[in-house]
């Protein structure tokens, strides 16, 4: 089951790389977070770790629910461009993305032997980091860049849950808190943009 969720995490990210509409991108982000949240719940209940379960629930609530909805409302309120075509053409992306995947699995190969058990998830987390960076790079508009940043945050969480069996509670809460501040700052930046116009 955890292998399926890890796969779903990667698959949603790859799908997001090909999305050309903003709402579709938000949907892939929500699904990505859904897979992550379920994975955290699964591992947390396996390890009997309340901290991980709490962070899983928070992920489901915030990242799969609240944040995509808030971003959607921001898009409507500030009339952002919803047609977001990636700068990297599809036929290049089709080559580039598997190349990144192969490279990161190769990079993570020695780690896998050491961490034990979750070797694949660590490799997926590292490749998601690179793919999220690619998502930020291939778009000119600001909104998909923000989603790329959020996807990167998800990759960090995946690494935190799978490689370490959950970070200390304090750190996880701190990360959530900072994510919320980031959303507030993004909102303020958009609002100021309106004032500048």
């Amino acid at each position: 089951m955890s292998a399926f969720l890890t796969g779903a995490f990667l698959a949603t990210l790859v799908a997001a790389l090909f999305a050309t509409r903003l709402y579709r991108l938000l949907m892939w982000y929500a699904l990505n977070s859904l897979a992550l949240g379920l994975l955290a719940l699964l591992i947390g209940s396996g390890l009997n770790d309340p901290a991980l379960i709490i962070s899983g629930v928070l992920t489901l609530l915030l990242k799969a629910g609240v944040i995509p909805l808030v971003l959607k409302r921001l898009t409507q309120r500030f009339a952002l461009t919803r047609q977001v075509t990636p700068d990297i053409k599809v036929h290049y992306a089709v080559v580039l993305i598997p190349a990144i995947l192969v490279f990161t699995f190769y990079l993570a190969e020695p780690i896998g032997r050491m961490v034990g058990g979750n070797a694949n998830s660590v490799a997926v987390a590292i490749s998601s980091l690179f793919l999220a960076l690619l998502l930020m790079m291939e778009h000119r508009n600001v909104a998909p860049k923000i989603i790329g940043f959020l996807m990167m945050e998800n990759a960090l969480f995946l690494l935190g849950t799978t490689a370490t069996g959950g970070m200390p509670m304090l750190v996880e809460l701190g990360i959530f808190f900072d994510l919320l501040i980031a959303i507030v700052v993004i909102n303020l930046l958009f609002r100021r943009e309106e004032a500048v116009e």
Partner: peptide, 29 residues
């Protein structure tokens, strides 16, 4: 300034995320 604020937000967030990613790997190690 507005453009650079966005720029700072995005690049700063990437840099900071890389730092956290590394911290998690160190912690796992």
């Amino acid at each position: 300034a507005h453009k650079e604020a966005w720029n700072y937000m995005i690049v700063g967030a990437i840099a900071i995320s890389l730092i956290l990613f590394g911290i998690i790997l160190i912690y796992a190690g």
